[in-house]
Design a protein around this nucleic acid. Structure first.
Lengths: 188, 188, 188, 188
DNA sequence: GATGAATGAGGATTCATTCAT
DNA sequence: TATGAATGAATCCTCATTCAT
């Protein structure tokens, strides 16, 4: 049998794409992505049919990784606040620890390139998080608002909080907790 | 005697740029912007030295317009809540009524193209809004957080709210008010 | 007013395309066409939106030029034989004198790139020739065959005749006359 | 012990090449040929050293098949007209029944890729047909013309006739006979 | 100033061929 | 031999900016 696709190469390309999209936006050149991944330009297209597919895959992988990270180690039991606190802290720390990933995600998020179908798949994968948010907000001002809206608000605040944590490393934990308290107040 | 630059043309170019940046991101071609503006390609460069300058100007004009809109008709007096309500409603309505502008702004916001200097100028212009936000949050959980952070949180929620208002026209007003209540709870 | 498109450049590009298509087929690179035309590569696309358009234009110009050449100097009067003789001789001589054009035409003819619409336009332009052919063949074996078919037969023989005239310069005139006699016999 | 090359695969590749060359010209990609043949891309190059060799082989097989078809069932005896009628009918019917083959042949014919050596080999293989044509035209206008020229004229008319038979299935037989009569008149 | 052609580096993608498995 | 990933030159086309008119 022929040589199988190399998972390493695939990851190298996605990693390079993450960095360059974070730095330059979706306009990042496939040739430069290849160079950064130490892979011949042509190889980008043996792993991803088009640049669009590469970006879609990147979006999917980033959102999946984030959801997985946030759900891993989730406390059991029904202390919704504790559970949400875990989500919030894990989430924002992931964002601070993975600046390129976070910024690449931000670029992909504003782009038309990422269409509703792809976006919905990401939301579905994050369903447990949405459920938790619904639970938290069940008795608050937003109790009648669409979950997707409430989820998007939490996302927006998490993103903003990460940005400030990043820029202000010494006060990162403090900002994280302040952000958490504010969100909790808004939701409950 | 040199012909003076035409304000109409300048505005046409900025308008076309708004639409195309909203649709395609910063990659929008100057030639296409010119065509959309019904202006010869060369004129883009008599009104703006480079594409970068055009985008910077666009960012400035959009943020300025938004700030002006929000501050116009601001209620007098010290009812901070009423004043902030005015800001919130005007802001989100502007966003819904000016979809292209809102989306262009979002594109410019994530871009490295718009540097900190330009961003700070926008913040300074919006200083009255920041002051109002500080006032609102003076006794809340975020009382010790940096104003810029609190401002960014409000911005993030306003943006998210506009997006959902846009997609859900029949419930726009309702979402606007829900969002407002949630922000108020978070801040105070 | 800005610089107008240069007819010289346009012709240079079409000329270079003629040569390269004759030599290499439709696969000829636009970059090489540009080089042969002593024109920057980008200019090819300011004169022709796509390579396809360039090839279509080339087809149209070649067929038009041939038709014009053949119709110019057509004897007046009703001596159909004399008129057709003029057509035949002019046609095959044009082909011998313009080897690149003839071969480029041959390449374009077999290509799917040149669609029926474009082909029909060429036939319509050559309508006077078809009428003459119909007149010549009105009492022959092919009297009930579709004119387009008879025309295509004549075309096929003219093309073949030119090829042999080209390869055999000393007997070119002889071949031309032999071909003519054979066609006349076939048609009448 | 080395596994022997599979005749089936070879034929599958040639078949796929026929279709794709007919559709797209010589630019057809080997990878696509492989896919159409349901054969791994690499196999194309174990059966044919280069793409060029594949195309040469294709040309040879197509011309050979046509000659074989035309010569099979050739009436014995010295009725040259009957023999040529058989050739003509078999030839044009083959062309109509094998559209892809006919069109692939046309593509290969105009290409420089197929050089004189290869072309001559095909002519030699078709020698009996040339002899018949010489016999038919021995007393006609073209009696002193080079056989190759006369052969090429017949080829050109056969090709044109097939094209029209193909496009006009209901009148195919009629066109076939009309074409035959015209050729006979031209030659004899 | 107004216009739009000119330019050539850069962009995404394709492809014949090779070669590791 | 079979397979299909690897490669990088080549392909068509785009684009910001300049400049002749």
């Amino acid at each position: 049998m022929a040589r199988p696709l190399s998972e390493d190469r695939r990851r190298a390309i996605l990693g390079a794409a993450t960095e360059l999209v974070a730095e330059q936006g979706l306009g990042a050149a496939t040739a430069e992505i290849a160079k950064r991944a130490s892979v011949p330009h042509g190889s980008v297209f043996t792993y991803f049919a088009t640049k669009e597919e590469l970006l879609h895959t990147l979006y999917r992988e980033l959102t999946t990784e984030l959801t997985d990270t946030v759900l891993a180690g989730m406390p059991k039991g029904d202390d919704a606040r504790a559970r949400f606190h875990h989500v919030w802290v894990t989430w924002t720390r992931w964002g601070v620890a993975n600046e390129a990933k976070r910024r690449a995600q931000a670029q992909l998020n504003v782009s038309e390139q990422v269409n509703d179908g792809i976006r919905n798949a990401a939301y579905e994968y994050a369903e447990p998080v949405f459920q938790l948010i619904r639970q938290i907000s069940a008795r608050g001002v937003l109790r009648d608002a669409p979950v997707r809206y409430v989820g998007a608000l939490v996302d927006a605040w998490a993103t903003t909080t990460m940005d400030f944590m990043s820029r202000n490393a010494t006060k990162a934990d403090e900002l994280c907790e302040l952000g958490f308290k504010a969100v909790m107040k808004a939701l409950s």
